[in-house]
Each structure stands twice: as structure tokens, then as C-alpha cells.
Design a protein around this nucleic acid. Structure first.
Lengths: 131, 131
DNA sequence: TAAGGTACTGGCATGAAAGTTAGTACCGCC
DNA sequence: GGCGGTACTAACTTTCATGCCAGTACCTTA
């Protein structure tokens, strides 16, 4: 089945692995995508793309995140090997989070996306449209 | 407040508009990001990045999507000016969906992300990890 | 005539995601 | 001595996204 017939040449191509261009339902990439494109996942990865940060700073930067969600998201990202957690056994607890190498790889792709969203959001959401 | 002190130089930078690197809660980019990083939003944008397609083909390619969710997601993306809908008033209904110029802009950023996820997913989710 | 395909819409139900609140352990500050 | 800060976890509740099913309108094929 031929899919692209006479369309504006897509400079970017889907992974060839997709037989017939179908995104399989059980595919692990679905899960991973869910993690990294989750509401708070994106923001946390973005925040960390600027360098290691502490719990409380992440809370401040991802405005509106609850402690629960921050903990949960960080745990998921850590399990996925995107974020590394370094806890120092000092008396007021101090934990630093940072991106792993893999995390940086990802954030390099994520940052332009968010930057684009940031630039276009106002136009699109509040838009020139009046309806 | 200095954020990045001695971290692996991030080649990619966040939009400078972010004061203090804080992602504001009420920001329209949050909404837009929610739309494009939604479970089905990503897949539909990706599918369409290969060219215009019909309703039934999108259903097949975004495996597991329900008709309701497909309709809803397409409507949101259309309202955001990312997808355009062309309905032909023929007798068995025929509707073609495609990306707008803005949609293509976005998909150019989205495709590498998904490709990366696709490549790394197996490793990360089912992983070399045994626990 | 009945089934099936196309492109939907709407209602009800449910389950997962998210928010809220409270608790922990230890310390410094006033 | 009590409050606040740090970095969480756990229980409870609410909200919402999603799923499932049924219906529509018209045509084609069997």
C-alpha cells in the first residue's frame, strides 16, 4: 500500500521499522512516549536540560506540579534511565537530579519542540481567530 | 539565581522568554503542549506527516484508537490549525485529513522525537535491566 | 432485503490520573 | 517550644480522559 503519493515532501521521515506506517498498539515506544510526553515529564526534562537541580527548584520551575506528581514523574524518568538521582546523606536532606546522557539526547529533541510550542501557543490558543 | 554551573554544555537552549526558567502555570503553551503531546495527538500528527490520509486509514495506523478519540483529537488539532479537513460531499462520505503548513513545521520536530523513542524504547522499557 | 462500509455523534460507565491532606525525621531559627 | 524548611510517602477523593456501545444517512454488494 502506497501512502505518500503527491504530498509536500516531508523532510523528516518516520522510522522505517513501521510496517505499513502502522503504530503498533503493544509497542514499548507507546509506553516510553507516554512517559516523556506526559504533562509533567516534558517540563521536568526541559528544566533539567539546563543542568542539575534540586527537588525544591524543580517544584518551583514546573509551576503547579504537586509533590506527588513530581515524585512520581521523577521516579518514572529515573527508571527509564533518563534522570539520575544523587542523594546526599546530609542532615537537611539534599537530593540533586540531573539528566543522564540518554536524557540529554532526548532533551536535545524535546527542547526545540517546546520552544516551537512556546512561540506558537499564544497565536494558536488565544489566536487571531475570534470565534 | 544562577542555574547552570558546571554541567555538560546543553547544545539546546530553552526559550529566553522563560523568566528564571520557570514554566508558568497559566501559559497557553501548556495547553498547546497538552494537545500535541496527547496520547493520540502525537500518533495522528506522525501519521499525517507522511501525507494526507482518510479517516479509516488514520484509524488503522494509530492502532487502538477509538472512533471517538480519533474524532476528538482531529477536531482539536484542526482547531489549532495543525490539521486541515477536506470533506467531499460524495455519496459514500470521503474526508481527507492533512497537515497544514504549521502542522508540517511541528511534525518536523515531532518526527525525530518519536524516532528516538522508537529506537530506544525496547532498551528502556523491556531493557537490559532484569529487575 | 439484509448486511456492510464510510464518517461520524452522543450517552453512560469506568478506571486511571491527578489533586488534597496528612505524616515522617531531623534540623535551624526566633 | 513551635514553626518552617527539605524531601519525601501513603491514603483518600475527585476529576477527567478514555472506552464501549448504539445510532445516523446513504450507498453498494450479495
Amino acid at each position: 500500500m502506497k501512502v505518500s503519493t503527491a504530498d509536500p515532501a516531508p523532510a523528516t521521515r518516520l522510522p522505517a521499522a513501521l510496517a505499513d506506517g502502522v503504530f503498533p498498539a503493544g509497542c514499548p515506544s507507546r509506553t516510553l512516549l507516554d512517559h516523556i510526553t506526559s504533562k509533567w515529564g516534558v517540563l521536568i526534562l526541559l528544566a533539567l536540560s539546563e543542568g542539575g537541580q534540586r527537588w525544591s527548584e524543580l517544584r518551583r520551575r514546573a509551576e503547579g506540579v504537586s509533590e506527588k506528581m513530581l515524585a512520581q514523574t521523577l521516579k518514572t524518568l529515573e527508571r527509564d534511565g533518563l534522570v539520575s538521582r544523587k542523594a546526599q546523606p546530609v542532615i537537611p536532606p539534599r537530593v540533586d537530579y540531573s539528566l543522564t546522557e540518554r536524557g540529554y539526547e532526548l532533551s536535545a529533541l524535546l527542547v526545540p519542540l517546546v520552544a516551537w510550542a512556546f512561540e506558537n501557543a499564544d497565536d494558536i490558543i488565544n489566536g487571531p481567530r475570534t470565534d
